[in-house]
């Protein structure tokens, strides 16, 4: 697949969304928790507690919705500041109980709208980046579709970041990039190539740790093996003391793009 075909696959309306992953991996053990305790409950972010085998975990996912009605309700997976604040609230709660945090990311980006700006979209994301860096509990992020810029990074300052083979992660959409740089959004395919946004590109650049095979609905064996991988990673990081855990997380980002 070309880079742009990967972008299209990552946006495919029929692919699995965060709630699908949650139900396949956690079934009935998942209990949803709502609200940022500041302003509202953002439905673009679905979050709660679940059992990963015998370990309680906090799960936070950006949800695009699976049909038109849901997509409207979920604001097409574009979170407002409330969504990021809800995520941070539950991460802090997870820290209190030293519960590992799993983030599932699938968003074209944080919502660019009047209310979002009025309520501090930039501030909300900035706070997440800063607080996640020193969250004293293991955090793992899996990109399951689109990873759109700061809106994705706000849930991805983690010990490890994994990507599904057909997911993408980029500083800007290829269309946006082409229209700003070349005044021509039809050059999106070229921009997608140039931006190096595929899972393989990001693995090669040292930005992610693992590429995951794309699971299909009902492929329970695949979800079980994904769960095992997550469990092992959490166990490895739960064994570290706080200082080791936070130093490793700091260094993970510190080393990215150190110029020659």
């Amino acid at each position: 697949m070309t880079a742009y075909e990967k972008v299209m696959a990552a946006r495919d309306a029929n692919k699995l969304t965060s709630v699908d992953y949650i139900s396949h991996m956690f079934g009935d053990s998942f209990i949803e928790l709502h609200g940022d305790r500041r302003y509202a409950d953002d439905k673009a972010v679905v979050a709660g507690l679940a059992m990963l085998f015998d370990t309680p975990v906090t799960v936070i996912g950006i949800e695009k919705g699976r049909n038109t009605k849901e997509r409207v309700e979920r604001n097409f997976g574009q979170a407002h500041p409330e969504g990021y604040r809800k995520a941070l609230r539950l991460m802090k709660q997870a820290e209190k109980f030293r519960r590992p945090v799993l983030c599932l990311v699938d968003t074209s980006g944080a919502y660019p709208g009047i209310g979002a700006e009025e309520r501090g979209q930039g501030q909300a994301i900035a706070e997440n980046l800063m607080e996640m860096m020193t969250l004293k509990t293991p955090v793992l992020t899996v990109l399951i579709g689109e990873g759109g810029s700061g809106g994705a990074l706000a849930l991805a300052v983690s010990d490890e970041v994994w990507m599904l083979e057909n997911s993408v992660y980029s500083v800007i959409s290829p269309e946006g990039c082409a229209s700003i740089l070349w005044k021509d959004s039809s050059k999106a395919a070229e921009a997608a190539e140039a931006l190096k946004l595929t899972a393989q590109d990001l693995f090669d650049l040292g930005v992610i740790e693992r590429i995951i095979r794309q699971p299909k609905a009902g492929d329970q064996a695949m979800f079980e093996s994904l769960k095992m991988l997550i469990k092992r990673t959490f166990e490895k990081n739960l064994a570290l003391d706080d200082e080791e855990l936070l130093n490793a997380r700091y260094e993970r980002f510190r080393k990215i793009g150190i110029p020659d």
Binding site: I180, A194, K196, L197, G257
Partner: peptide, 22 residues
């Protein structure tokens, strides 16, 4: 962010935030 540096420019947001936090 400087889009010509792709994802590496996005990662600078996390990197700087970490240094600010410390």
């Amino acid at each position: 962010a400087r889009m010509q540096e792709g994802i590496l420019s996005l990662m600078q947001m996390a990197k700087t935030s970490g240094a600010v936090k410390r």
